[in-house]
């Protein structure tokens, strides 16, 4: 590969006492690539993504961004190098409104160091309108917004800043069909801008439609890593459930090659 990958995770391990949540996993992501991360609950995929997001410190292993080794002590470290995360829980502060959530931890300030709420509101209006033109309730605490609106805020927060790598943990789980389509469009758009995306999903349809590559985790191990054309949904399912490809996969692929 001539291109330097955006991210390389090399031999990552994470132990909780005797449990190996992530066991010697190596994974890379190229600019403009969408990689689907699949696996059962507890397979270690969320754990791996949290390590990349800086929310969890690995027990061992190295992370390189644009070829340079990095160490994240907290989520700020990851954000500083352009890694943004959309968590499945959305990670929103319920009592705060949309602009306050969007800029949480990265508040815009006036010359005197006061919070510049007027500017944050204007910026939030712009970025939210790009994602959902109907988004009007910018002054309401986000606890009063619909699941779709909350998801939009979480997405807006991840793309507003200078994002290079985007981790999306089940971004469409709370969404209806039209909003899911909006997210799919957004992913393609970001991909065209050269942003690398890890898409954690249970939805096989989304994964096959949007991803260039799938990686499958099972019991903390990375059990498969395939370009989307190499495998079908049954193969991926077998990797998720059994941790291995079906017995006939090799033969089938050879046959297709001929």
């Amino acid at each position: 590969m001539t291109q330097t990958p955006l991210v390389e995770m090399i031999d990552i391990e994470k132990h909780f006492g005797g449990v190996r949540a992530v066991d010697h996993v190596s994974l890379s992501l190229n600019p403009g690539e969408v990689v689907g991360v699949l696996g059962h609950n507890g397979a270690g995929k969320s754990c791996l993504m949290r390590i990349l997001a800086g929310a969890m410190v690995p027990s061992a292993g190295e992370i390189r961004v644009n070829g340079k080794p990095v160490h994240f002590a907290d989520p700020n470290g990851a954000r500083d190098v352009g890694i943004e995360t959309i968590y499945q829980t959305l990670a929103l502060a319920d009592h705060l409104d949309a602009p306050k959530n969007l800029f949480l931890g990265r508040e815009l300030k006036t010359r005197f160091g006061n919070l510049d709420d007027a500017r944050m509101l204007r910026e939030a209006q712009k970025v939210l309108a790009r994602l959902n033109p109907n988004f009007k309730n910018l002054r309401d605490p986000v606890s009063q917004l619909s699941g779709g609106q909350r998801q939009v805020i979480a997405i807006a927060r991840a793309i507003y800043f200078d994002t290079k790598i985007l981790i999306m943990d089940e971004p469409t789980a709370a969404l209806g069909p039209s909003e899911t389509a909006m997210v799919a469009d957004l992913i393609r758009q970001l991909q065209a801008e050269g942003i690398g995306i890890f898409l954690v999903s249970h939805d096989m349809h989304d994964v096959f439609e949007l991803c260039d590559r799938v990686v499958v985790m099972n019991k903390g191990h990375l059990v498969g890593q395939h370009a989307i054309g190499e495998v079908n949904k049954d193969d991926v399912l077998s990797l998720i459930v059994k941790g291995e490809l079906p017995a006939d996969w090799c033969a089938r692929n050879l046959a297709e090659a001929h």
Binding site: Y87, T89, L90, A91, A93, L104, G105, R106, E107, R157
Partner: peptide
């Protein structure tokens, strides 16, 4: 002040947001 509210509102979210 903003961070005080965010911490009380959802501590984990605040932490993940870099607070």
């Amino acid at each position: 002040g903003r961070h005080i509210y965010a911490t009380g509102s959802n501590e984990e979210a605040a932490r993940l947001s870099g607070v």
